[in-house]
Lab assay of single mutants.
Amino acid sequence: MQRVNMIMAESPGLITICLLGYLLSAECTVFLDHENANKILNRPKRYNSGKLEEFVQGNLERECMEEKCSFEEAREVFENTERTTEFWKQYVDGDQCESNPCLNGGSCKDDINSYECWCPFGFEGKNCELDVTCNIKNGRCEQFCKNSADNKVVCSCTEGYRLAENQKSCEPAVPFPCGRVSVSQTSKLTRAETVFPDVDYVNSTEAETILDNITQSTQSFNDFTRVVGGEDAKPGQFPWQVVLNGKVDAFCGGSIVNEKWIVTAAHCVETGVKITVVAGEHNIEETEHTEQKRNVIRIIPHHNYNAAINKYNHDIALLELDEPLVLNSYVTPICIADKEYTNIFLKFGSGYVSGWGRVFHKGRSALVLQYLRVPLVDRATCLRSTKFTIYNNMFCAGFHEGGRDSCQGDSGGPHVTEVEGTSFLTGIISWGEECAMKGKYGIYTKVSRYVNWIKEKTKLT
């Protein structure tokens, strides 16, 4: 034993070699072989497995989906700052455009905790909710729209109204504003409101030439003092309507412009014939205590009207009353817009006519005020429907199939267009061939041609 100890002390290297040989010859039971080890760690190889990531292109799944990435790591994937920024906006807080917040056709661009709407022409605001041009839906104005110097929408209202708090709607500024039905039992019968379409306001006024200088022999019209197929109006439903009495009662109609003036057809009036105007009328054979009678003290036909040349060209006249009318729910003026808007309103496509005229061709006159909704007829169809001249200051309205029309005794009465609950004068009943005849239409004086003249002559002093 002493000898062994001496050998170990003198030859430590020998001992180490012996131990190493023993270990190498022993069977290893701690580690699995290569094949079995792979069965336990069965993990798919990654895209760049075996390579240094710093030297390969980034992978979106590896960089940002398996674990949260930084902007720089995302930049490695896209290799483009702009594309990385677009991805980053949604990656950080989701897609803010998912709810489609942009209105009126706006395009949404996502941002971090926010979004941006790219608005089409005519709109602005956070969600493109603000109209900035009158060309689109009248700028959301209830009545009139004008573009300011910086191309912003400025709404306005006709006389007797003021802008509401929203700067879009119009509200009454006087007790009985024009064009409004205020009798409670008839307010439910107000005709369907007309909503502004998209309009090209630059070209809204037709490029028409008034044929002022045409000389033409007097034409022989049949029954051209021209509501057939209409309905009984309720008291106060058309408070701007008046009836004219002269040699015979209810020979023509008219509309209240203001307390002192009536507008009617020029062919209705004769110099030297006494005319009485009755406002607030409903049943011409009954006294309903809503009527107001006034005498006409002055007749002003349009300066281009000449019955000797043509009885229905420039067929418009103004009547001055001896005493002002007292405005109330049964006696209310009709609204008159400017030339541009009167023309736009007419193009809405349908209007209402009213009167006490004959209820059928050569038949009896109506006792109760009649009204009828009539569609506008395109000019080409209008011209083809008659052998008589249709001037540019006239328009056609009615039904091709016949059966409904204005008729004798309705002449001078109103053709009105309702705009968001307020009625505007767009025409004056003038003439036609018979009444409600198939293929024939009622012919009306186009008020847009005469609004400046009306307003100039009827100013209240």
Rank of each mutant, 00 (worst) to 15 (best):
Q2F: 10
M8T: 13
A9D: 05
E10C: 11
P12M: 15
G13E: 04
L14E: 02
L14D: 02
I17G: 02
L19K: 02
L19F: 12
G21A: 14
Y22R: 03
A26T: 12
F31C: 08
D33C: 03
H34R: 11
E35G: 13
E35T: 13
K39N: 09
I40S: 03
N42H: 11
N42Y: 08
R43L: 09
P44W: 08
K45P: 14
R46N: 09
G50P: 14
G50V: 10
K51H: 15
L52A: 15
V56T: 15
V56C: 04
V56L: 12
Q57W: 04
Q57Y: 06
E61V: 15
M65N: 15
M65W: 07
C69R: 03
E72G: 12
E73M: 05
R75W: 04
R75Q: 09
R75F: 07
N80L: 05
E86I: 15
E86D: 14
W88T: 15
D93N: 06
D93S: 06
D93P: 05
C97S: 01
P101C: 00
L103P: 01
L103N: 08
N104K: 02
G105L: 03
G106M: 01
S107I: 03
K109F: 05
K109W: 04
D110I: 04
D111T: 05
N113G: 07
Y115S: 01
E116I: 05
E116V: 09
G122S: 04
G122H: 04
F123K: 07
G125M: 00
K126Q: 15
T133I: 04
T133G: 07
T133K: 07
T133V: 05
I136Q: 08
F144T: 00
V153K: 05
V154P: 03
C155Q: 00
S156G: 07
S156M: 09
T158F: 03
E159A: 10
G160I: 00
A164W: 03
E165Y: 11
N166I: 01
N166S: 04
S169T: 10
C170E: 00
E171P: 03
A173I: 10
A173V: 12
P175L: 09
P175I: 06
P177D: 00
P177I: 01
C178Y: 00
C178G: 00
G179V: 00
Q185W: 12
Q185D: 09
T186R: 11
S187D: 13
K188Q: 11
R191E: 13
A192N: 12
A192D: 13
E193Y: 12
V195N: 12
P197Y: 12
P197W: 08
D198I: 09
Y201L: 09
N213M: 10
S217W: 10
T218L: 10
N222Y: 10
F224R: 10
F224T: 12
R226N: 13
V227L: 11
G230L: 12
D232V: 06
K234F: 14
F238S: 03
P239C: 01
W240Y: 03
Q241Y: 10
V243C: 05
K247I: 10
K247V: 13
A250T: 09
F251R: 09
C252A: 02
I256Q: 01
K260W: 06
W261Y: 08
I262P: 01
V263W: 02
H267C: 03
V269N: 00
V269A: 09
T271G: 09
V273W: 11
V273L: 13
I275S: 03
I275R: 01
I275D: 02
V277M: 03
V278W: 05
A279P: 00
E281D: 12
N283Y: 09
T287G: 10
T290P: 05
T290W: 11
R298K: 12
I299Y: 09
I300T: 04
H302E: 02
Y305A: 02
Y305M: 02
Y305V: 01
N306W: 03
A308I: 07
N313D: 07
I316Q: 00
A317I: 02
L318D: 00
D322I: 02
Y330A: 08
V331E: 00
T332W: 02
T332P: 01
I334N: 00
D338I: 03
K339D: 07
I344R: 12
L346R: 04
G351R: 02
S354V: 11
K362E: 13
G363R: 06
A366F: 10
Q370Y: 03
Y371F: 12
R379Y: 14
A380N: 08
L383A: 15
F388A: 05
I390D: 08
I390L: 14
N393M: 03
C396T: 01
G398M: 05
F399G: 10
H400L: 10
G402K: 14
G403W: 14
S406D: 14
S406L: 13
C407S: 04
Q408P: 12
G409I: 08
S411P: 11
G412A: 13
P414C: 09
V416C: 06
T417P: 00
T417N: 10
V419S: 05
S423G: 13
W431C: 14
G432D: 12
G432N: 14
E434F: 13
E434P: 06
K440G: 13
K440T: 14
Y441F: 10
Y441V: 12
I443H: 04
T445P: 00
V447N: 00
W453F: 05
E456N: 13
E456H: 10
E456S: 13
K457Q: 08
T458C: 06
T458M: 04
L460H: 12
T461A: 14
